[in-house]
Nucleic acid binder design. Structure first.
Length: 268
DNA sequence: ATGGTCGCCGAGCGA
């Protein structure tokens, strides 16, 4: 079973790019981020025509996440628990009925968190929101782990886990994507017992999932690895491959992110 | 390079 994550940076602007990639690579499950549209505006028919069930948690202009699945989905739950006042559409979860072992999939768009500081030097609310959101994700992962089932937390984490996951670490030193507090929260998630799929399959440095639109970042391979699929121990036991569809970034009208995917060997 | 580039929507923000 192939499970992918793709921050499309507007699903409407990216529809042709997205459907072409879906047709070519045929993933079973896809977590999408940054839809930038409400549920009613999601191009549902075009996706369903390719054989996917669709679960959307949209938002006007900002954020928005979805799960596409060739298998039926049960228990579809938008929102990350822990703060009922949070209106930002950044999380959706579903139980994927594979026919044998069900796989729980959480699709997430973790807050960017910049700027880190306000003008007077205090921590900016955007950064504290990011850290608080990560605390909620950690708590939720702890609860999912008690179920002792295979699950995948896939999405745009807006976290560069290590120096080797970016082109120029010094440029990111004080950025919300690389600051120590941010990376510590990500480590905390990993240390619960989750597996970073990409690092379980690859040791080489400088493999990226995002290249900025600005300043020729793509041409210079000035990228960062911020899209991740984290696995519960039961899912990690099924992991057979993980890779990044880098070539997508060089196509016409691309997203600034590219898809990352895993292959899970589900037992009969 | 206090710029650069996208996408939202129709000015300026978010990334």
């Amino acid at each position: 079973m192939k499970i992918a994550s793709f921050n499309v940076n507007s699903v409407k602007a990216r529809l042709n790019n997205l459907t072409q990639w879906l047709s070519e690579t045929n993933p079973d499950v896809v977590c999408l981020q940054e839809l930038k549209c409400v549920d009613e505006a999601f191009p549902r028919e075009a996706i369903e025509d390719l054989g996917y069930n669709v679960a959307v948690h949209g938002q006007k202009t900002y954020n928005g996440v979805a799960i596409l699945s060739k298998f039926p989905m049960e228990d579809v739950t938008p929102r990350l628990p822990g703060d009922d006042s949070d209106e930002q559409a950044r999380y959706i979860e579903a139980l994927i009925s594979t026919g044998t072992t069900p796989i729980r999939v959480g699709g997430l768009y973790l807050p960017n968190g910049n700027p880190v500081h306000t003008e007077d030097g205090a921590l900016h609310e955007k950064y504290t929101y990011k850290l608080a959101w990560m605390d909620r994700l950690i708590k939720h992962a702890e609860i999912l782990l008690t179920l002792e089932e295979p699950f995948v937390l896939a999405g745009d984490y807006n976290i560069i886990p290590q120096a080797e996951d970016c082109h120029k670490p010094s440029a990111w030193k004080d950025d919300a994507l690389f600051r120590q507090e941010s990376r510590d929260k990500f480590r905390k998630l990993i240390n619960l017992g989750l597996t970073d799929s990409f690092r379980a399959c690859h040791t080489e440095p400088n493999r990226y999932t995002f290249w900025d639109y600005q300043a020729g970042a793509w041409q210079k391979d000035n990228g960062i690895r911020i899209d991740h699929l984290l696995l519960s121990p039961q899912a990690a036991d099924m992991l057979s491959a993980c890779d990044v569809d880098k070539e997508i970034r060089g196509r016409e009208k691309p997203s600034d992110h590219v898809p990352i995917w895993i292959e899970l060997d589900i037992p009969e």
